[in-house]
Structure formats: C-alpha cells, structure tokens
C-alpha cells in the first residue's frame, strides 16, 4: 500500500468536511477497498472512516419503510431485516463470508457499485431511496454503470430506504472463485407491480429485466417467464461464463427467486 492517513469522524458533518481535502476517500468497511489498496491500484492521501458515525448505523422502521444506516454491517441486516424484508435479509446473509459481513457495510457496497455486488440488486428491485449527506436519490437514478453512481465527489451514502415488498427473494448464482454474483436476481413484488433487478451479468452493472417484470406483474409465477428469453448482448464474458450463459442464468435465477419469494 501507498502511504495515507486515516481519520475517524463521529458525525456525518465531520466526515463530509474531512472528505473535502484532496484525494480523500471514504472508507466504509473496506472489504473491497482494502484489497484494492494492497495491490497499489489506488493512492488516496487520506481515508475517512465512516465506521464510527453512530447516526449511520442501524435499522429503523419509518412508516413501513425500512431505513438502514449507510454504515450498517451486512451481518446486522442479515439478522435484523428478516421480519419485514426477508429477501433483503437473505441477500445480506450471503454476501462474502461471515468475517466480511462483520465489516462490510451497505453504504460502502452501494457506493462502490461493483457490477457483481449483491446490494445494488436489492436497492434497484425495491425501488429504494439512497439517502446521502445532501439529498435523496431514487435507486433507478443512482446506479449509472459499472463502478459508477450518481454520487458527487465527497458525497456519502448515509442511509438506504427500502419500501416493504409483499414478497421478495434473491437468488445468487455464484462465480465459483470469488463467490460474487455471476448472476444475482432480486425479485420484489409490490402492490403496483413486480420489479426484477439483475447483478453480475451486465457490462453496465445492475439493471432491471423489464420484460420479466411485465410478465411477473401479470402473473407472479415462474411459468410466466417461460416464453421469454434474455438477450446476451451487453452481458459479461469472462473466465467463468460467457454472455450466453449469463443471459440464460438470468431467466433461471429469476424463476427460482419467484418460486422462493415470500
């Protein structure tokens, strides 16, 4: 690693202030960032740790909407979100491994928008709202491409608000080595329709499978997808799977998520 300083502010305001300096970067668990730093692929001058900001930690019910602080660990979500959001809790419980879930945070994951990360699929499928230090952003507007989001320089995700679905489920087909999603599909059924978000598959990062949504909104059952196929265009091809394979898996995993949704 290159040399840098670490600051540990205890309020959002202090964190935002600290991030104003040149080459400063937020550290929100660091389960992706630290390996990147170790391979000398990034050279920040300062890391601003968000883990000591108590106002960014924890789950709360805001009138039927689940608000999760940006510095809340995956393990906490896995253990506490299940009552209202079983799909979300199931997703959080399968990110990384137990030790990673004890450090990694929802804000860090959402802000990084790794194309194979799980949380972006949950946020997009729920139609979640991303709360930052300065505004609220709809998930549909937040994820703008692989490792790219609507966040401005120095803007941090302080919370994510998840409306409560009638039924939901996340199915992850793991890339065998990294155990990230090769294809992860989050299906969430709301009164006004079904949303299907797919991670791991596309070169543009997380996306909604709109044909699948339409079919499932009309008939929430795996069979509703039978006549559909997913185009391989724009899907990722790598060591572990071709674009065709990923496209195929989108449909398979969506069916399984629908079957398992509760």
């Amino acid at each position: 690693m290159y040399a840098f300083d670490i600051e540990r502010p205890t309020t959002i305001a202090d964190a935002v202030a600290a991030l104003k300096s040149d080459e400063a970067q937020p550290l929100s668990g660091g389960q992706t960032l630290i390996p990147t730093l170790k391979s000398r692929l990034a050279a920040p001058s300062k890391l601003v740790s968000l883990s000591s900001i108590s106002e960014m930690v924890g789950l709360s019910d805001e009138g039927g909407v689940l608000r999760i602080g940006g510095a809340t660990k995956h393990d906490t979500v896995a253990k506490e979100a299940g009552g209202s959001h079983p799909g979300l809790a199931g997703l959080a419980g399968k990110i990384g491994d137990p030790a990673v879930r004890h450090r990694g945070t929802i804000g860090g994951s959402i802000a990084n928008n790794d194309p194979a990360a799980c949380y972006p699929a949950a946020a997009l499928a729920h139609g979640a709202t991303i709360v930052t230090d300065r505004r609220e952003i709809a998930a549909d507007d937040f994820f703008t491409g692989m490792f790219d989001t609507a966040l401005e320089e120095g803007e941090i995700v302080t919370a994510v608000k998840f409306p409560r679905p009638e039924a939901s489920n996340y199915q992850k087909f793991e890339q065998p080595a990294s155990r990230f999603a090769m294809v992860g599909v989050f299906v969430a059924k709301f009164a006004d329709g079904v949303r299907v978000a797919v991670t791991g598959a596309s070169e543009d990062g997380v996306f909604r499978w709109t044909e699948g949504e339409e079919a499932l909104s009309a008939n929430f059952s795996p069979d509703a997808l039978d006549g559909l196929s997913v185009s391989a265009e724009g899907m990722i091809t790598d060591l572990h799977g071709s674009a065709d394979y990923r496209a195929h898996l989108v449909k398979v995993m969506t069916k399984r998520a629908v079957a398992a949704a509760r």
Binding site: I6, L27, G30, P35, S49, A99, V100
Partner: peptide, 29 residues
Amino acid sequence: CDTSQCGACTVHVNGESVKSCTMFAAEAD
C-alpha cells in the same frame, strides 16, 4: 492471501470474526 479470501488472518474484534488483513489498525482503536 491479499484478496481477503483465505481467512488465515481471522481474529475477533469486539467478539466478531474479522479478517485482520482487511482492517486497518487505526480502526481497531
């Protein structure tokens, strides 16, 4: 390893397992 996967470095921090190769000492204050 250097990608936070092998787990040989696992310790407990405040009673929870973490990978000590993927946590800064400063954050363990």
